[in-house]
Design a protein around this nucleic acid. Structure first.
Lengths: 191, 191
DNA sequence: CGGAATCTTGAAAGTGTTCAAATCAAGTGG
DNA sequence: CCACTTGATTTGAACACTTTCAAGATTCCG
């Protein structure tokens, strides 16, 4: 059930059998229906979610009730509001499944105990966050370098299947564009 | 000399005297002149830089020779191209001092050895990167929510002294605007 | 003082948004 | 399985924001 998670971890650190077993025993599994929520703004984010299948979206709600998607969570990604998680404070984000999804859940309540029993997990997460941080800096760089249209095309080129998988208005939100504009871009392409 | 670095680390983890001493003994100190480079694109980023004083900027060079600033490094910040650092690959970034600066340097060559001698440093960096990742996601969210003008004002409000400290064209680059447009914004404000 | 770098100003052009209406698609209940 | 309702996408016109380019003013530094 947690094969993918264990494989992911073992790309970064080594685990022995006891550690593997311990880890599996403390993770929770959850199947989330389409449009099901794993986190709602105002609540404390008390878990880290590792996506096993499906797709999550993490978004914030702006003044005008508009949703701004910060990132998508595809299989192999951890999704969490780290600030809320570590400081036990209400989150500004919502995390919702865009399709039926399965997640492995690591609860805040047991994190420290788990880390003390498997210290190399600190390293695992250090490497994961280092990577994610790096990726998001790259993303920031690209955003400013490219026009909205270029952003769309580059994203569509990098994730051709994914572009079909989520509704356009979510893509628009994620890319910082309006659905109308994406519509125009796509019409152009056809020509 | 490394007081600020030690204090910073001890906000996240505890160090004993031996560890403190070891740490201090392996760090390198460097004073960088204004416009001095700590990293040039094409070179491997073989160090992490902890800013003790002054200010660094990390940027990428776009097609048209234009510099896109990804982030500034003020005292208390670590600056590094993590991907280049961990994989020993040439970096796309440049890191340059915008004013006379002092940095504490942790070299890639000794990182693993240091981590094995002070395992809690993994935790320190896990927390640092988690925070930085979080901050950069917040930044991505804000970028898309706000207009360029709003971005400028919010930044000026949050870092009133800093806005005076770096040339406007760098601010413009960091905020994803043109220097001309910042000029217009500032003129408006005066009215 | 002189030269280079930085900042300002204004006009013209581009890029993307807003709004409203029309079309298309999908899910529900009868 | 159809009719209905709701949600999602498209289209077009008018508008807003930001950039580009070129020129002039200012500041900084040796």
């Amino acid at each position: 059930m947690y094969e993918d998670l264990l494989n992911h971890i073992e790309k970064y650190i080594r685990l022995n059998d006891a550690e593997r077993q311990l880890l599996v025993s403390v993770m929770r599994y959850e199947k989330v229906p389409k449009k099901g929520f794993l986190l709602k703004s105002g609540k404390v984010c008390s878990s880290r979610f590792f996506v096993l299948s499906g797709c999550l979206r993490q978004y914030i709600i702006k003044e005008n009730e508009v949703e701004q998607i910060i990132q998508f969570g595809l299989p192999g990604w951890w999704i969490c509001d780290h600030h809320s998680f570590e400081n036990n404070q209400p989150s500004e984000y919502c995390v919702q499944a865009t399709e039926v999804s399965e997640v492995a859940i690591l609860d805040a309540a047991i994190q420290e105990d788990l880390f003390s029993k498997i210290p190399s997990l600190e390293r695992y997460f250090r490497l994961i966050f280092q990577r994610a941080y790096d990726a998001s800096l790259t993303r920031i760089g690209l955003e400013y370098c490219m026009s909205g249209e270029e952003r769309y095309h580059q994203f569509a080129k990098n994730f051709p299947d994914f572009v079909q998988r989520v509704p356009q208005y979510m893509l628009a939100s994620f890319l910082g564009l309006t659905p109308e504009f994406i519509s125009i871009i796509r019409a152009k392409k056809g020509k």
